[in-house]
C-alpha cells in the first residue's frame, strides 16, 4: 500500500469533528445490526422457555401469545412422569465426563510422544490418527457396529464408551500444543539425567494444563451432543442418553409441545450456562478444531 501523494497537514477541525460524529454514527449502526442478529439467535431460546410454561391451549393459539397466563411447572412434572428424564440426564453426564477423561488420559501421552520423541513407525502411527479424523463416520460406523454386536456389547454402555476412548482429534489438539512448547525446560531435565517420563510429568504436563482443560471441555461437549452412535448401539430407555431420549420421547409418546419444550429447555440450559464461564477455553479449542477437516 503506497501513498500516492504526501500528506498535507490540514487544520480542519470541523472536518475532524464531522468524521468523529460519523464514526460514532457508524458504531451505533453496527451495534443495531449486531443486536438484530443477536435477537435472531436468542429469540428461539426465549420462545422455548416461555412455551415450557404454557398450557397446551396457550401453546396452540393463533396468533400466538407470548406470556403464559399462569407460570406453572406442570409441564416439567409431566416430563419427569412420562420418561426417565432424570436418568437420561444422568447417563449423559457420567458417560460424557468419563469419555472426555479417558480421551485425555490416552491422548496426552500419545500427543507428547508424537510431538517430542523420535521412534520407528512414528509417521505411520501419527498418520493413523490423522486418518481417523479424515474418514467420515458413514464409512466406519457399519463395521464398528457389526464388531460391537459380535462382541455382545449391543445395548450396553461398553459399546458406547470403549470405541470412544481413543480420540484422534484430542491427540491432534494436544500435539499442536506440545509442539509449540519451548524445548529448553525439558532439555534441562534430560541433560540432568532425567527420563522422558520425568520430562513429561514434571515439565510438559503442568505447562499443558490450559490446553488439556480446553481439550477436555471440547471432548465433553462432543460426547454430550453425540447423537448417531448412541442412537445405533443403545436401545433400552433406561440406558438412553439425552439426545436420543428426547427424540424417542417425541416419537413414542406424541407429547404436546409445552412438555417437549420443557425437555428441550432442561437439556439445553446446563451447557449454555456452563459455556458462559468457560467460553474462552472452548472457542480457542474450536478455532484449532477448524483444522480438523
Amino acid at each position: 500500500m503506497t501513498r500516492s501523494e504526501p500528506l498535507r497537514p490540514e487544520p480542519l477541525t470541523r472536518r475532524d469533528a464531522s468524521l468523529k460524529a460519523r464514526a460514532r454514527g457508524s458504531q451505533a449502526g453496527l451495534l443495531g445490526l449486531l443486536t438484530l442478529g443477536a435477537v435472531a439467535i436468542l429469540l428461539p431460546f426465549v420462545w422455548m422457555i416461555l412455551t415450557a410454561f404454557k398450557t397446551p391451549a396457550e401453546a396452540y393459539t393463533w396468533p400466538p401469545i407470548w406470556l403464559p397466563a399462569k407460570w406453572s411447572l406442570a409441564n416439567f412434572t409431566q416430563l419427569f412422569d412420562t420418561i426417565p428424564f432424570a436418568r437420561m440426564f444422568f447417563n449423559s453426564v457420567w458417560t460424557s465426563v468419563l469419555i472426555a477423561s479417558l480421551n485425555i488420559l490416552s491422548a496426552a501421552p500419545a500427543a507428547y510422544a508424537f510431538a517430542r520423541l523420535r521412534f520407528p513407525g512414528q509417521g505411520l502411527f501419527f498418520g493413523s490418527h490423522l486418518l481417523s479424523l479424515m474418514i467420515p463416520w458413514q464409512v466406519t460406523i457399519i463395521p464398528v457396529f457389526l464388531l460391537i454386536r459380535q462382541l455382545g456389547w449391543y445395548d450396553s454402555f461398553t459399546a458406547l464408551i470403549v470405541p470412544s476412548i481413543a480420540s484422534g482429534f484430542t491427540v491432534f489438539l494436544l500435539f499442536q500444543f506440545f509442539r509449540s512448547l519451548p524445548r529448553s525446560l525439558e532439555e534441562s531435565v534430560l541433560i540432568d539425567g532425567g527420563s522422558w517420563f520425568t520430562a513429561l510429568r514434571h515439565v510438559a504436563l503442568p505447562a499443558a494444563k490450559g490446553a488439556i482443560a480446553a481439550a477436555w471441555l471440547f471432548s465433553f461437549l462432543g460426547n454430550w451432543q453425540s447423537f448417531i452412535w448412541p442412537l445405533i448401539v443403545l436401545q433400552s430407555s433406561e440406558k438412553m442418553l439425552l439426545p436420543v431420549g428426547l427424540l424417542s420421547f417425541q416419537n413414542q409418546y406424541s407429547v404436546n409441545i409445552p412438555v417437549l419444550m420443557a425437555g428441550a429447555t432442561l437439556s439445553t440450559l446446563p451447557t449454555v450456562i456452563a459455556y458462559m464461564f468457560v467460553q474462552r477455553y472452548l472457542t480457542d479449542a474450536a478455532i484449532t478444531s477448524g483444522l480438523k477437516g
Binding site: P44, M48, P243, G263, A264, T268, T271, Y275, M276, A286
Partner: peptide, 17 residues
Amino acid sequence: TVYYLPMVTIGVAVALL
C-alpha cells in the same frame, strides 16, 4: 458469545425447538 450459543446445545433439542 451469543452467536456461538447454539453450538453448545444438544442438536436434537434445538431441532425439536
